[in-house]
Design a binder for these strands. Structure first.
Length: 202
DNA sequence: TGAATGATCAGCT
DNA sequence: GCTGATCATTCAA
């Protein structure tokens, strides 16, 4: 698969003053690829959410809170922030923005593209719509976890991004599972690919 | 609807 | 250093 330095482009967007909404939008329809234990898997990103460390109460790093867990988010954009939650699940984020700014895009859903048999084995599921439609699921399907993948450079050859050809517009909605975030819960920072069935929730 | 399950971290000593 | 509430979820029912 074509592999340009897409992560650097994400960084550039920020330095050029493009809003984080734009960065999240350009991830929709892009490809997320992984090569774990010599096995290649890839999916098209269909759903993503923005988290902003400085001002967003739903973000782990709010308010600019640097802890061992959130340290990865403060790194320069273009690397992975993978964390472990609920005692069993990993979640994958793309770190965006310059160093010292804790912004990230949580990847919530993919459409499986390549390595589907590998995903089925890792997930112990066969239905295509049950492989990568959820942040915990897609980490399992792509073989990603905090221990091995937190902080990895997304222009490397372990986990990386490739631009896609977007054929449908992006829709926005409220983010999922952040009821505690007070006024921030209503921000329309969830981005989905219109008309795509590989979405975690309606 | 609720149980599973463990890392995380604020708030304490 | 210890404690316990909390959690960007999933699955079985």
């Amino acid at each position: 698969m074509f592999k340009p330095d897409f992560s650097q482009r994400i960084l550039q967007d920020l330095y050029l003053g493009n809003a984080f909404e734009f960065t999240a939008d350009c991830l929709i329809g892009a490809y997320l690829c992984s090569q774990v234990d010599g096995e290649f898997t890839a999916g098209m990103i269909t759903e993503a959410e923005v988290y902003i460390g400085h001002s967003d109460k739903a973000c782990h790093a709010y308010p600019d809170k640097l802890t061992p867990r959130t340290a990865t988010m403060f790194r320069p954009g273009g690397c992975a922030y993978v964390f472990f939650i609920y005692g069993m699940y990993n979640q994958f984020n793309v770190v965006i923005g310059p160093e010292g700014v804790a912004n990230a895009v949580l990847i919530r859903s993919l459409e499986p593209i390549s390595g589907i048999e590998i995903m089925q084995r890792r997930r112990a599921k066969t239905a295509l719509t049950d492989l990568t439609t959820g942040p915990g699921k897609l980490c399992q399907a792509l073989g990603m976890n905090r221990k091995e993948h937190d902080g990895v450079d997304l222009s490397g050859d372990l986990v990386w991004l490739s631009p896609g050809v977007k054929t449908y517009p992006t829709e926005t909605s409220k983010r999922v599972g952040i009821d505690y975030a007070e006024e921030c819960r209503d921000y329309l920072w969830r981005y989905t690919l219109a008309g795509n069935k590989f979405i975690s929730k309606i």
